[in-house]
Write a protein that binds this DNA or RNA. Structure first.
Lengths: 326, 326
DNA sequence: TTGTAAGCGTTATCAT
DNA sequence: ATGATAACGCTTACAA
């Protein structure tokens, strides 16, 4: 691995001149430039990006931390961030948080030590006070889930409103006992959606029945058991599935327990299933795009005042599954 | 941002001693250690990972380059690599190659300049001679698609065999005119699968008819048009879809043109659709895991001789779509 | 137009 | 057990 110094010696110039050639500095005579370029060729010189990065004090990398990249929702966020980052000549470091909250802090602090240019986080925990000192130096944006105990740029969906309209939609179909299916009671998005569900019931003068709420239904067996329980005579006559993983897990069990269902979060082929699934659609790519955009903006104008919280609207897409099967 | 030098001054020791404390060097007296630790606390010292990285000459990062992380197949590869990398305290840099082959070289060389610890690539091009000089210093493993004009560790599936058995399966159902649907004729995996399809036909004494081969069917309209063409009287009586994107794009059109179909690549909910889709299943996570494992092994034992090429078996999962609808 | 000197923050080497 | 010095490869500031 040839260094700049070696190229300089070979070309009979100083390292600085090699640097100038490399960075297209106009203050180099054509002959010198040529000689340097030849030496670079001969020595197969490749600049060591680590040195440049170190010198500059900032790594041209944005981090994106998500619970799980295999989930198409988070994959879309990562993809959008990467796309925007690339336009700024930034690379993207992906951090899978996993569904274990204990890992989050250690993993994030470890990447932040690398002097990132920015960080996008879809967190799995609810206390982000530990990011406070970092946020002062590195732009950090939260997506999908708001930070806890920390003021930071946040891009989320209207979880509460979406859940409210999904529930109201089922109520409009005449249902008074509606089941609630979700992944985990600790996820901020789920908390919001549960709120939306409850407020929709309240707005319709319907009681909230905790026995109709099922958490952890992310696998087919669990989702099937939940649907079976809900399908009992004293159970529910319809279901609101508060996240796409649960909806996808519940779909097979719908054959045995054909309850009307609305899901939060669209997913591939939802419109092709039998029945096709009515969903509240949201836009993960928009979250990623906006967050990355914000990082860039914060880096360019650290002093500028911007709205911290952006809430994206969601849309109910009515398909077949919300209607009672005949 | 306090530096090690500042901590040293505060604690009244030399920077090297601070370094020793940081790295748990036993040659530090308990009192000194304590004093240093206090100073670190006071100054809220955080080591600058960029400096350490630069000093070491190697970045604790593995790159993973895939055509598209939103594709669950590639997401699974990335995920598996990240998981394995994490066990070695390595971060994962994701590089989306996109479906534009022109980008590959520039993007890969740019990240390689960062002195990665390793690189996993699912390439979009077929000539990788430009990686030769890099491969001498950095472990590079290819996944899903073999490299062209370069000898490197390669982990792929039995594309040809899988396509052969899928086609043979349809032939076994009495079909003699079988359509072929795929993304792009240039993708190495597709080339192999086309070969497998052709050889299965040949083995059964059936002619190959180029008019039954449709490329670019990755979107619903294109896939629908292809199926419509195939469904004509002089067309095909069954279809082999050579990749999951095409299969998913073709599914909706199956309602209008209910041709028996076998797809290469399983996908979420394939078993729940009506009809459920018969597929050749493969294992992207295994590719990622093996490739990452290999990078680690190459780094640890540069001299060791290992089999360059690993071909993973695939499995036909028979569901409903391979049978003629009644 | 070109070069010199210094430094980014950490660690290896060699003293003491 | 601790420290002085140099070095990693590049770029900035300042000179010539």
């Amino acid at each position: 691995m040839a260094t700049m110094r070696e190229v300089a010696v070979a070309a009979g110039v100083s390292p600085k001149t090699v640097s100038r050639v490399l960075n297209d500095d106009p203050h180099v005579s054509p002959e010198t430039r040529l000689r340097v370029e030849e030496s670079m060729q001969e020595l197969a010189y490749v600049p060591n990006a680590l040195a440049t990065t170190f010198r500059s004090g900032r790594s041209p990398v944005v981090g994106v931390a998500v619970p799980d990249i295999v989930d198409p929702f988070f994959a879309a966020i990562v993809n959008a961030v990467e796309e925007r980052a690339l336009a700024e000549d930034l690379s993207t470091l992906v951090i899978s948080l996993g569904h274990d909250p204990a890992r989050e802090r250690a993993v994030l602090e470890s990447v932040l030590r690398r002097q990132l240019s920015g960080l996008v986080v879809a967190p799995t925990t609810t206390d982000h006070a530990y990011l406070e000192p970092w946020a002062a130096r590195i732009p950090i944006a939260f997506v999908d889930r708001a930070p806890g105990r920390l003021v930071a740029d946040t891009f989320i969906h209207d979880d509460r409103g979406g859940a409210h309209s999904a529930t109201t939609h089922l109520i409009g179909h005449g249902h008074t006992r509606i089941g609630f299916l979700a992944e985990s009671a600790d996820t901020p998005t789920i908390v919001e959606r549960l709120e939306g569900y409850r407020s929709a019931l309240a707005d319709a003068g319907l009681p909230f029945d905790a026995s109709l709420v099922h958490f952890g239904a992310t696998t087919r067996p669990v989702a099937a058991a939940a649907l079976e329980a809900l399908a009992r005579p004293d159970g529910a006559t319809a279901v609101f599935s508060a996240d796409a993983r649960c909806t996808m897990a519940a779909v097979p069990a719908l054959k045995a327990h054909p309850l009307p269902l609305v899901g939060f979060g669209d997913f591939p082929l939802a419109d092709v299933l039998t029945p096709s699934i009515t969903v509240v659609a949201h836009d993960p790519a928009a979250l990623g795009r906006l967050a990355a955009e914000r990082l860039v903006e914060r880096a360019a104008h650290p002093e500028r005042r911007l709205r911290r919280r952006t809430v994206l609207p969601v849309t109910l897409i009515e398909r077949e599954s919300c209607r009672t099967p005949v």
